[in-house]
């Protein structure tokens, strides 16, 4: 499965929204349930799914899904 689909599946599962569609511009403002706690859950699930660990400032500076995808690509995922 392509990186984007895998990532989208994580979002769908975390937010319990099977029809959720995310793209490069999606931010926490677009998903009402994406609060600071769900951000922690999301981070945990993404690292678990892709077997990576974000460095301290990487996790903090993620602005949108596009940045997340390019970071995962940099780390050799997908």
């Amino acid at each position: 499965m392509a990186l984007h689909e895998r990532l989208q599946d994580v979002f769908r599962d975390v937010f319990n929204n099977p029809g959720l569609v995310v793209d490069g511009t999606t931010t926490s403002a677009d998903i009402p349930e994406w609060d600071s706690l769900q951000h922690v859950t999301l981070l945990f699930r993404i690292e678990d799914e892709f077997g990576v660990e974000f460095l301290g400032d990487e996790a903090a500076s993620l602005g949108n899904v596009g940045e997340l995808e390019s970071l995962l690509t940099q780390k050799g995922c997908g």
């Binding site: 975390v14 859950t41 678990d48």
Partner: peptide, 11 residues
Amino acid sequence: DFASWDAAARA
């Protein structure tokens, strides 16, 4: 399993 428990707790 944390992920399952967390999701179940929300449900």
